[in-house]
Design a protein around this nucleic acid. Structure first.
Length: 806
RNA sequence: GGCCGAGUGGCGGAAUGGCAGACGCACGCGACUCAAAAUCGCGCGAGGUUUCCUCAUGAGGGUUCGACUCCCUCCUCGGCCACCA
């Protein structure tokens, strides 16, 4: 018979004291801060990815509580942003209303799963009491000069009608809706995350994060050390024209960035990005320095109109055009070389200009071949190579540097021809969105005073409650059309002024939420320092792999900035990060509505129960690897729960059993190492063949199982006559002396091949083990007595291997 | 193209230098039953001369007394990044 999971679950949902999960500020017990990424309350409800993190974090939290820790395991809602707004538009309601409804659904689902959240610390990023502090933190960035306004080409999603951060563009498409992203020139707010590139890199060293996650962040920040080298320009159109001077009065030059200054003797031309500022000047009607201005302008136009997808396509052919009338002097050779613009040089990396060394760079090589440009070899390959060699080696034909190795030449040549320079792939964070559903950026544009921050005592700048909030598509936020909200007196001079109408991106509220949990209701500050000092940094942070270069990087940036400003007590926010693998559908594909292969947790809970859903989810496979959701197997877990329920009902207790001590050790260790799949297997294995079970052993068993299956264990605990909760009981301890076996199976092998096993007393080593084996039947049977043994390997309690010369 | 991860029965997976396939699903046989469901018991990588032996952890090589595990080369799948000079 199957136990009635529905009855048991609804009974305990009503009976459990939620305050038992509340954490205490400043308790003497050791603190543990267990965090899961707070959900985005979309209309779809919880998905299997949430389940994976939330159940794992719940098991850890319950385990640590039982071990005597003061555990904070909070939850909240990350509810601003595009998806919520798009959903509300689709449903024809206000986002405020749809968010409230979705949160209600999520809360039900989380409760149904039996997750032991500390609901007393609930936060919601769209609550003015919360976003007041998001705005306040933005103003700290602004006051520190790290929030700035600039006009530039940004990623623009034509469907969502808003700008996107670099991190939000995947394969040239909008991360949210999949639409091809366009380049649009717009006034935008930026956060200067690049100023923190080095600190964000250094901070990774001390974190207990998976190497894969650290590496991804490292690559995203993308530090390259190299040299910046100036190439002087020579003009053919007006010889002697000295109107081309730089800001220091020197003749005009182009600065290039290279990581291979050792190849400079092979630099046969320069290439600039079409958007390079110098190109703009050189093609300016007043300053025109080119002999082929029209051709160059046409080329720039054609690049600009090229769809982004085509420009980044994999097998794209490089194209460019020579700037006729201008040449550059290679500072190493003193030779004049041609200057080009080409679509393969990026305007926003390095200096936007490169020295081309076709013999030792594949991109330059294919470009040089197409346009018949010179190819000069200056590095001797370490192996035979046909055309282009991009590795390092011995320098050749490089003047005084000939016969020096690349690695030594690099620093010497960087110093001689230019200067050592570091560049990052990381770009500043486009921080404004032209949408309604976000935190208003708390700034005021005054004709007299310029940009003025909203004074602290006027925060929060509340999002006006309006009926029409659809994006305009003009590059302006819908807030711009709300006259009585936009028009305001300047707080500085009292004159006419207008509010900033852009809103913050979805990532703003989640960039500091773990700090708010430590002091969620504080009206005076975002979180009191002493609360932070007690709780932070977060001990273990569960979440998805997909947030590695978005949320996790942004959160580290905000935390580090606030730390430097003295507002935060720990330089790094998350000590240990446990990402979960993605949950695929049973066909191995990603779960998605359009594929129709989405598994809904509600259906599983209703059919098999929350306990079975939780345990099967953990049983599927290692937490960090991606798993295919195959529903067939859940009946195995359900059968196990039915079996233990029947045993509990029968109450057939017997003698104490030492096996329970091994189970305590195994489960404890598996939880500590996040190996839930083998923990579930260990429960099953124990229960398949436990022999006898005393009442005391049964109580230990229930306690061990309680973090995994909170409902059924509570029911069975009460069946024993207890009136308190199994979840408030201390974690069982094991007796070291009872987990050791008295005898062990020793494998006997010859030349590494297993030939049989014998049972011997445990703990025998070296000679003792050898002698015990020598006197065994198996030893005689294998005829080992008469064989000449080269070597005998003994491994205590494991095996004896005889190496015999044939 | 670069970086990271993974490849083990029909399936999910276990074992991370010492008995390969724990645990579970599916499947087969049996018990109980008028019957079915549920439950319980047994079997379940391939092959063979079947108390035992041989082969087998993507392919090939290497290190080792011994390799799923470590090293090298390659193949396949997944993830992230991608003209970053």
């Amino acid at each position: 018979m199957a136990y009635d999971h529905k009855e048991i679950e609804s009974k305990w949902q009503g009976a459990w004291d939620k305050a038992a999960n509340f954490s205490q500020d400043f308790s003497d017990k050791p603190k543990k801060y267990i965090l899961v990424e707070f959900p985005y309350p979309s209309g779809a409800g919880l998905h299997m990815g949430h389940l994976r993190s939330y159940v794992a974090a719940d098991v850890i939290s319950r385990f640590l509580r039982a071990g005597g820790s003061n555990v904070m395991f909070p939850i909240g809602w990350d509810a601003f942003g595009l998806p919520a707004e798009n959903y509300a538009i689709k449903m024809g309601v206000k986002p405020q209303a749809s968010i409230a409804e979705n949160i209600g659904n999520f809360r039900k689902q989380l409760d149904a799963l039996g997750l032991s959240f500390d609901w007393s610390r609930e936060v919601n990023t769209t609550d003015p009491d919360y976003y007041k502090w998001t705005q306040w933190i933005f103003l700290q960035f602004f006051k520190a000069g790290l929030a700035y306004e600039a006009t530039g080409f940004i990623n623009w999603c034509p469907k969502d009608k808003t700008g996107l951060a670099n991190e939000e563009v995947i394969d040239g498409r909008c991360e949210r809706c999949g639409t091809l992203v366009e380049k649009k020139e717009l006034r935008q707010w930026y956060l200067k995350i690049t100023a923190y590139a080095d600190k964000l890199l250094d901070g990774l060293k001390d974190l207990d994060w998976p190497d894969a996650v650290k590496l991804q962040q490292q690559n995203w920040i993308g530090k390259s050390e190299g040299a910046e080298i100036d190439f002087k320009l020579v003009f053919k159109k007006n010889p002697g024209d000295n109107s081309w001077v730089d800001k220091d009065g020197n003749p005009a030059h182009i600065s290039v960035f290279t990581t291979r200054p050792d190849t400079i003797f092979g630099a046969t031309y320069l290439v600039l990005a079409p958007e390079h500022p110098w190109v703009r000047l050189a093609t300016d009607a007043d300053h025109d320095a080119l002999l082929n201005r029209k051709k160059v302008l046409d080329f720039i136009e054609s690049v600009r109109n090229k769809p982004e997808m085509e420009r980044i396509a994999q097998d794209r052919e490089k194209s460019g055009v020579e700037l006729e009338g201008v040449t550059a002097i290679n500072p190493a050779t003193g030779k004049e070389i041609s200057v080009w613009i080409a679509d393969y040089v990026l305007a926003n990396y390095g200096t936007g200009a490169v020295m081309a060394v076709p013999a030792h760079d594949e991109r330059d090589f294919s470009f040089a071949k197409k346009y018949n440009l010179g190819i000069i070899k200056v590095i001797k390959p370490d192996h035979e190579i046909d055309e282009c060699y991009s590795g390092e080696g011995m320098l050749i034909d490089s003047g005084e540097f000939t016969s020096i190795s690349s690695s030594t030449a690099k620093s010497e040549m960087a110093a001689k021809f230019g200067r050592v320079k570091v560049f990052y792939k990381l770009r500043d964070w486009v921080f404004s969105r032209q949408r309604y559903w976000g935190e208003p950026i708390p700034l005021i544009h005054c004709k007299q005073c310029g940009i003025v921050p909203v004074p602290d005592n006027q925060l929060p700048v509340k999002l006006p409650d309006v009926d029409k909030y659809e994006p305009t598509g003009t590059g302006e936020s819908p807030l711009a059309s709300i006259a009585d909200w936009v028009n305001i007196k300047c707080p500085k001079c009292g004159g006419e002024a207008k509010r900033e109408t852009n809103t913050m991106p979805q990532w703003a509220g989640s960039s500091w939420y773990w700090l708010r949990y430590t002091d969620p209701k504080d009206a005076e500050q975002f979180a009191a320092k002493k609360n932070q000092e007690y709780w932070t940094p977060v001990d273990t942070y569960f979440g998805g792999m997909e947030h590695t270069t978005l949320h996790l990087l942004y959160a580290r940036f905000w935390n580090r900035f606030l730390f430097d400003q003295g507002f935060v007590s720990a330089p790094e926010p998350f000590l240990r990060r446990i990402p979960h693998g993605i949950v695929l559908a049973s066909d191995g594909e990603k779960m998605s509505k359009s594929r129709g292969n989405v598994v809904n947790p509600d259906d599983l809970i209703s059919k098999f129960g929350a306990d079975a859903t939780r345990m099967y989810e953990m049983f599927l496979g290692p937490h960090e690897l991606s798993v295919s959701w195959n529903e067939r197997g859940i009946v195995g877990v359900k059968r196990f729960l039915d079996k233990i329920y029947r045993f509990g009902e029968s109450g057939e207790f017997g003698a104490d059993n030492a096996k329970i001590h091994k189970l305590v050790q195994k489960i404890t260790s598996d939880i500590e190492h996040i190996k839930f799949n083998t923990a579930v297997a260990a429960f099953m294995e124990f229960f398949n063949d436990f022999g006898t079970m005393s009442r005391a052993d049964w109580e230990k068993f229930l306690k061990l199982l309680s973090p995994f299956a909170p409902y059924i264990t509570e029911e069975l605990w009460h069946m024993l006559g207890h009136t308190d909760s199994v979840h408030t009981q201390p974690w069982p301890q094991y007796d070291e002396s009872l987990i050791k076996d008295e005898t062990v199976e020793i494998v006997i092998s010859v030349n590494g091949k297993k030939r049989g096993t014998i049972r011997l007393p445990a703990g025998l080593e070296g000679n003792d083990l050898k002698q015990a084996v020598d006197s065994s039947e198996l030893y005689a049977k294998l005829g080992l007595k008469d064989k000449k043994k080269e070597k005998i390997i003994t491994v205590p309690d494991k095996l004896v291997n005889f190496v015999i010369k044939e």
